[in-house]
Nucleic acid binder design. Structure first.
Lengths: 106, 106
DNA sequence: TTAGTTAGTTACTTTATGTAAGTAAGTATA
DNA sequence: TATACTTACTTACATAAAGTAACTAACTAA
């Protein structure tokens, strides 16, 4: 069964944002350029999957990768213009979460 | 590695929305009450996963389920108030997709 | 020579999803 | 009476995605 009646551009956007970890990676980069290991420890993603996601996002022109040949090598990840354009969506989610997700009591 | 520094309520919201199919199911229900098979054919999801998602969403008070004892039985799914409160997020995504996702040429 | 750094990759396991067939409860048809 | 048809699922099995932990390249420092 494969006959969706939903707008394909919307679907594409959803398939980007609803891939596991992708939204969190972008959200994390909203606060500025970050390195591989920073993103990794901030959101608790495995190196394997983070590596995959960053490659995807680079290919989709959402994320920029910059190699700094220090020692040891440093790689900086940041958002492109397209990446930044996702901010309003993430802010809406942030806002919604404050209104509708019960605070965690631990 | 599990030491995220991201707001747990935001993370919860993301984990809801970035679960595969969930956003599409909610989006589909934004246009009104629908039956199992309508949702299924509109977004191209398998019966198995749709059934799982609708149960989850019911438990999270995002979706309402109403049994109509006709013959054969009809089950109507619709959004709760919490479900409707997600509309701005989905509209942002919709809007973004029109601006940033290239039109499909087929 | 051994240890330490960052940004990954590899092999293997567990979980999630897809596919297709089957089920319950009822009506209609032959 | 038996067979077929409906909706809304569930089940069994196969494939794809994600988690875990160990490993690598290239270089420095001890």
């Amino acid at each position: 069964m494969k006959q969706p009646t939903i707008c394909p551009r919307f679907e594409k956007a959803i398939s980007l944002l609803s891939q596991r970890w992708t939204a969190l990676v972008i959200y994390q980069l909203l606060s500025g350029t970050q390195r591989f290991s920073e993103i990794q420890s901030a959101i608790g993603i495995s190196g394997k999957v983070l590596s995959e996601r960053l490659k995807d996002l680079e290919h989709q022109d959402v994320v920029k990768r910059k190699v700094i040949p220090e020692t040891p090598v440093v790689i900086e990840y940041s958002l492109t213009e397209k990446g930044h354009s996702l901010e309003p969506i993430l802010r809406e989610i942030e806002n919604w979460s404050q209104l509708w997700v019960p605070p965690v009591t631990e």
